[in-house]
Amino acid sequence: MTETDKDSISLLGQIKDKLIGRKQDWSRDGRALTGTTAPHAQRLPPGQRLVSDWPVLDLGIQPEIPHAAFRLTIDGEVTNPVTLDWNALMDLPQHDSVSDMHCVTTWSRYDNHWSGIAVATILDLVQPHNTATHVLFESHDDYTTNLTLEQFAAEDCYLVHTWEGKPISRQHGGPLRVLVPRYYLWKSAKWVRRITFAGADHPGFWETRGYNNNADPWLEERYS
């Protein structure tokens, strides 16, 4: 490794640490909290603002995963653990969906058109055990997050590869990301590489850094 490579890695680490520190400050300071809640029938959650673009937010790393190298492992408390390459993933039934998305940094975007694999298809494929209560996600940038199985199994949840008719870009989590639209977007893991069904909860990256374990935007569950 050259000195230039080492300097580049060091700079990326500094950027990542700065981004993480800033978001932890938001949690400590209660940034953007309005102190209000709203029914889910209200389309825009409390404290959110509408945008027409799709802002980019990550940990300062945007891994590149070619289709030829793609692998998705689904394991844990399941009858049929699998590892899917890209072709196997695309051979599963594909569906289109439309949903809003809400980021904890206060932006929301309406009517996003997605294509991907319904979570119901994944559940049928791996057949979670009765002991499974939670789902854990690992990403190619080492990000982790968690959901209850009930949250993940909702009918509007997908593994998506297409947004507005085009493959999801690397900066937005392509080639494959989780989509859980009823919760703040940090629960919808980008660059997902592993989904583990578990018999207990294991809070993920942001959940252990001051962010709410449930993350319901209408209850304004931004922080712990």
Rank of each mutant, 00 (worst) to 15 (best):
L123C: 00
C103D: 15
D141F: 14
P167Y: 05
Q62R: 08
Q62P: 00
W54N: 10
V126E: 09
P175I: 07
S108Q: 06
R177N: 08
N80M: 05
L176H: 03
L89A: 13
W54K: 08
Y184Q: 13
N80P: 11
G47F: 01
D85R: 10
Y184E: 06
P93N: 03
P128A: 03
V135I: 15
A69F: 04
T144V: 05
V98F: 03
H140P: 02
Q62F: 12
T105S: 13
F70S: 09
L149M: 13
V82T: 09
I168W: 02
L92E: 05
V98Y: 08
R177W: 05
V104E: 15
V51L: 09
Y143W: 09
P63M: 09
D156L: 03
H129G: 12
N112H: 00
W107T: 10
V178R: 02
V178C: 05
T131L: 05
H140Y: 11
P66M: 12
N80W: 08
Y183A: 02
S115I: 06
A118P: 02
D96S: 15
S188E: 10
R49H: 14
G174W: 08
G173W: 02
W107G: 13
L159F: 09
S188T: 01
W86D: 08
H95A: 15
S115F: 00
W86P: 08
R71Q: 14
A68S: 15
I61E: 05
E77F: 06
G60P: 13
V160Y: 00
G116D: 01
I65Y: 01
R177E: 07
R109F: 04
